[in-house]
Amino acid sequence: MNQDRIDHILEQWQQELPQLDASALAVVGRVLRIARLLEKQRETVLSEYGLSLWSFDVLATLRRQGPPYRLKPTDLYGLLMLSSGAMTNRIDRLEQDGIVERLRDPGDRRSVMVQLTPKGVQLADTVVPALLSTEQELLSHFATPDEINTLTSLLRKLLASLEKTVK
């Protein structure tokens, strides 16, 4: 079996502090490393479309709402786990790029809605399939669909546990 960086790190800890139980690092270290590598992969694909990770998150979140592809800024920053200030800056930048627009909320004239422009919808409809195709290709290294299902189930279990305990 091939060894990875985490195996090397575990061996180093075993050598330096053999009494240390570093077994959690076998999972956590790999999950963190995988997350970083997947982010780099996403950044590469998204940069071809002039997008960053954060701009794609906003674009995709609005697009998957369905027509008319809009949310209140508070809902948007809640879904993206951002502060209102960070969300305002992101909306400003995407508005300058013609990807989103601010509209008066018809239900409350004091507030606004953030909506994808036709350019934003078209961009999302181009980028999302390209990104998912690239990510599907990354998963093609699994031998069987059962392996992917097992991994999905285990990751779901870990994520659900973390979402309950980490605030």
Rank of each mutant, 00 (worst) to 15 (best):
residue 1 M to D: 07
residue 2 N to D: 13
residue 3 Q to R: 15
residue 5 R to S: 11
residue 5 R to T: 11
residue 5 R to E: 14
residue 12 Q to A: 13
residue 14 Q to V: 06
residue 14 Q to Y: 05
residue 15 Q to E: 11
residue 18 P to L: 07
residue 19 Q to Y: 08
residue 21 D to F: 09
residue 22 A to P: 01
residue 22 A to M: 06
residue 22 A to L: 01
residue 23 S to D: 11
residue 27 V to R: 09
residue 28 V to G: 05
residue 29 G to M: 02
residue 30 R to C: 07
residue 32 L to V: 10
residue 32 L to Q: 07
residue 33 R to M: 10
residue 38 L to H: 05
residue 38 L to V: 11
residue 39 E to K: 13
residue 39 E to S: 12
residue 43 E to S: 12
residue 44 T to F: 08
residue 44 T to M: 09
residue 44 T to I: 08
residue 48 E to P: 03
residue 48 E to V: 04
residue 48 E to F: 00
residue 49 Y to D: 04
residue 49 Y to C: 04
residue 49 Y to F: 15
residue 50 G to Y: 02
residue 54 W to S: 15
residue 56 F to W: 10
residue 56 F to C: 02
residue 60 A to L: 06
residue 63 R to D: 06
residue 65 Q to W: 01
residue 66 G to F: 07
residue 67 P to W: 05
residue 68 P to R: 05
residue 68 P to S: 03
residue 69 Y to Q: 05
residue 69 Y to P: 04
residue 70 R to K: 11
residue 72 K to L: 05
residue 72 K to S: 11
residue 73 P to C: 02
residue 75 D to S: 11
residue 79 L to C: 02
residue 80 L to M: 07
residue 82 L to Y: 10
residue 82 L to Q: 12
residue 83 S to N: 08
residue 86 A to N: 09
residue 86 A to R: 15
residue 87 M to P: 01
residue 89 N to Y: 09
residue 89 N to M: 13
residue 90 R to I: 09
residue 90 R to K: 11
residue 94 L to S: 03
residue 101 E to Y: 02
residue 103 L to F: 04
residue 113 M to A: 00
residue 113 M to G: 00
residue 115 Q to D: 02
residue 115 Q to R: 14
residue 117 T to C: 03
residue 118 P to K: 05
residue 123 L to V: 03
residue 124 A to T: 09
residue 124 A to R: 04
residue 125 D to H: 06
residue 128 V to S: 10
residue 128 V to N: 08
residue 129 P to C: 07
residue 131 L to D: 03
residue 133 S to Q: 15
residue 136 Q to K: 14
residue 136 Q to L: 15
residue 138 L to K: 08
residue 141 H to D: 08
residue 142 F to H: 10
residue 145 P to I: 04
residue 150 T to W: 07
residue 151 L to K: 08
residue 153 S to D: 05
residue 155 L to V: 14
residue 157 K to N: 05
residue 159 L to I: 11
residue 159 L to R: 11
residue 159 L to V: 10
residue 160 A to P: 00
residue 161 S to C: 02
residue 161 S to E: 14
residue 163 E to W: 06
residue 165 T to H: 15
residue 166 V to A: 13
residue 167 K to P: 04
residue 167 K to D: 14
